[in-house]
């Protein structure tokens, strides 16, 4: 039997916002170099769970967690976790493209510079490499000095992906990365994610069920903070085992 490489193991994990339990006792594994999609109605806790994977929720003051999230076997909620390093290894791309108000080049070089890389030739290489991997190099190579905000929505989103890739992450978390984009840009991003999957593990939250069906290997369905069903995307969309999952994906929910 081939050993499955689980990059994350989520164990009895809960998140509270004040008294509200947003994520309830979730158990889940995230497999390396796979795309795992999290679907569910608004308020089901999917974004909270996603943000827990690189401790973005720490930024919300009232939040606290129970249980464990093991990243390569080590609990990221341990007291001595280097959260900055964790977020470098587990990057994030958001719903609305949010480039820094600086040049295309600076957007991508920002992270490596913070990490202490100063040599121009080395930075050039990192920037080009990241832009190539994000499939936007051809479009921006002649305007690296122009503002990142001058690009189209789809280009900005790929720039943000390049910015994350420059940090050489092992995992990329995507929170509704195409909900602000047109269908062509969406298709570009989806193709990009499938390409990136070869080198990066991807977890994506999406409201677009067809998107989950198109690109993910595994699908997680959440409802009211609970993890209702987790399985191969094929199974979830053809023959889900849970009635709630079935009702949700066939649009007969509630």
């Amino acid at each position: 039997m081939v050993e499955k490489k689980n990059i994350f193991e989520i164990r009895d994990f809960s998140v509270y916002y004040g008294d509200l339990m947003a994520v309830k006792n979730n158990n889940l594994v995230i497999e390396k170099n796979k795309i795992t999609a999290i679907i569910g109605p608004s308020g089901c806790g999917k974004s909270t769970l996603l943000r827990s994977l690189n401790r973005m929720n720490d930024l919300i003051l009232s939040s606290r967690v129970e249980g464990k999230i093991l990243f390569h076997g080590v609990d990221i909620y341990d007291r001595d976790t280097d959260v900055i390093e964790l977020r470098r290894r587990v990057g994030m791309v958001f719903q609305k493209p949010n480039p820094f108000p600086s040049s295309v080049y600076e957007n991508v070089a920002y992270g490596p510079k913070i990490r202490g890389i100063k040599k121009k030739s080395q930075l050039d290489e990192i920037v080009e490499n990241a832009l190539v991997r994000a499939d936007i190099w051809k479009e921006v190579k002649d305007k690296l000095d122009e503002s990142g905000l001058s690009l189209s929505g789809g280009q900005m989103q790929r720039l943000c992906i390049a910015r994350s890739l420059a940090q050489e992450p092992e995992v990329l978390l995507f929170d509704e990365p195409t909900s602000a984009l047109d269908p062509i840009s969406t298709a570009n991003i989806e193709n990009l994610l499938q390409e990136l999957q070869k080198t990066v593990t991807i977890v994506i939250v999406t409201h677009n069920m067809q998107q989950a069906a198109r690109i993910s290997d595994y699908t997680v369905f959440m409802y009211l903070g609970e993890l209702i069903e987790f399985g191969d995307t094929d199974t979830i969309f053809v023959n889900p085992q849970n009635k709630l999952t079935e009702e949700y994906i066939t649009g007969r929910f509630g």
Partner: peptide
């Protein structure tokens, strides 16, 4: 309609 699950079947 992009049917799924039991609708698709």
């Amino acid at each position: 309609r992009q049917p799924k699950a039991r609708d698709l079947r």
